[in-house]
Design a protein around this nucleic acid. Sequence first.
RNA 1: GAGGCGGUAGCUCAGCGGUAGAGCACUGGCCUUUUAAGCCAGGGGUCGAGGGUUCAACCCCCUCCCGCCUCACCA
Length: 503
Amino acid sequence: MSEVEYVRERWARLQKLRSSGVETLPYRFEITHTLEEIVELYGHEQDAGRLQTVWARLAGRVQSLRWHGKTTFCHIQGRQARLQVYARQDALGPEAYEAFTNLDLGDVIGVEGHLFRTKTGELTLAVQRWALLAKCWLPLPEPWHGLTDVEARYRRRYLDLIANPRVRSIFLRRSQIVRLIRQFLDSRGFIEVETPVLQPLYGGALARPFKTYHNVLEAELFLRIAPELYLKRLIVGNLERVYEVARNFRNEGVSTLHNPEFTMLELYQAYADYEDIMRLTEEMVAFLATELFGTLRITFQDQTIDLTPPWRRLPMLAGLMEVGGFTEEQLYDRAFLVARAAELGVPRAGDLSWGKLIAELFERLVQPTLVQPTFVTDFPVDISPLARRKRDDPRLVERFELFIGGLELGNAFSELNDPFDQKRRFEDQQRQRETGDVEAHPIDADYVLALMYGLPPTGGLGLGIDRLTMLFCDVTSIREVILFPLLRWVPVELPIPPELDRT
RNA sequence: GAGGCGGUAGCUCAGCGGUAGAGCACUGGCCUUUUAAGCCAGGGGUCGAGGGUUCAACCCCCUCCCGCCUCACCA
């Protein structure tokens, strides 16, 4: 049967229901409990007499229907809990009962009655009155296999959420993660702030931006690629500890690890350095695991990951020596690095700076081995234009990236607070841009001006919320943790029968 | 951007160069404690789109669209 015919059929049933006296499509329905509350309160209550006295008004989506002549069972589903509902002709009367048997899977109903337990012991509501709250005009995916077609799952995420409990649990967990992060940071004296998404000049990361246009100002604007430079202005402004749960936009490819818009926690703490931020990070992630799972040992892709702090610190150059087999001399031997990089398939290795060569080699040789939580520290200065130089080696910066389960989760520095050095670093980026590096950081004089008023020593962190959620939900595609991942637009044809397509 | 895989009923999937299939869902009937309810009967298809080869194409060929995976790009 075509979708149009389903709609037609259900339309006819709705008309029948309207004439049965059952309340139809009301503006509100007063509930006494959510389904979660009812199950929580009475799920273990065995006393039949006591259950009998519980009168409840509940609502949910009909997710199964079993009818047996003069009685009908169904389950209604809420956000997490579901409850069985039992309708009898003798309790409802012939009209309301007949209407109940004409429900469709997917309809949203409100029910009123008392609780009891069936023969098999299942907590159930015996309906006395009911109302149709919303009509489901189209058939739902079948309950047994759920919805598996990936494209359909992303384009119609609501169906995915209805049909696949695991998907629901991922997004509930994501919400919990963000809530716990706020709780953790608030308890440490951070304040949550909001900074511009529309920026006249983008910065704070090395990436290509989306461009847009303000009509009245007649000005080009960019969607932010990171909130970093605004948050650090706030540290200049004495706010001392700030964070933002920031949606960032990067005009880059889509993959299992990248969505053009994604969510990053950024935080800045005055008077701290990157060592402090490492401790903060491991404590925060350990807090999350403990609150979510009650343990610091989690499973990701069949590997057990131990989140117990302190985590391994691995200086980038040390990693190349240990895992990559480099000697200290080789690390500064440009010809050797170029040859090794070319060997590993790095394109245009000869054109890369020392820092980029080191980073490429590290990424290929060492990164895949990082399953247990690891802070990779001390990056080359030329790929880190916003990080402060290492106190005992000006070729490097005080920066770390966090890897867990092979995922790159975060990036942090001792923030560069010297306006003169910052200006030179921007100028260096500008030169890279002129040689064709489209991701080089643009010069932001307004930001340097802010630094001239004095940025205290500051530690900052960017933590990928999407990827952190992937880790905690044991999924390998970022689209599984983003409710509506970016897909190419396709036209939709509405299955509305022509005779119903009027006012 | 390159390569691989996929798109068949509302959903999950078979299928074969020769009349389009199953399970669930749907419709009608029976059934007052069922739960992947059961039993009986029935309806439902632009086989992603377009072109080509062929007596004949869901199937073979070409182009395109959409998606997934790997790689590249990308921190």
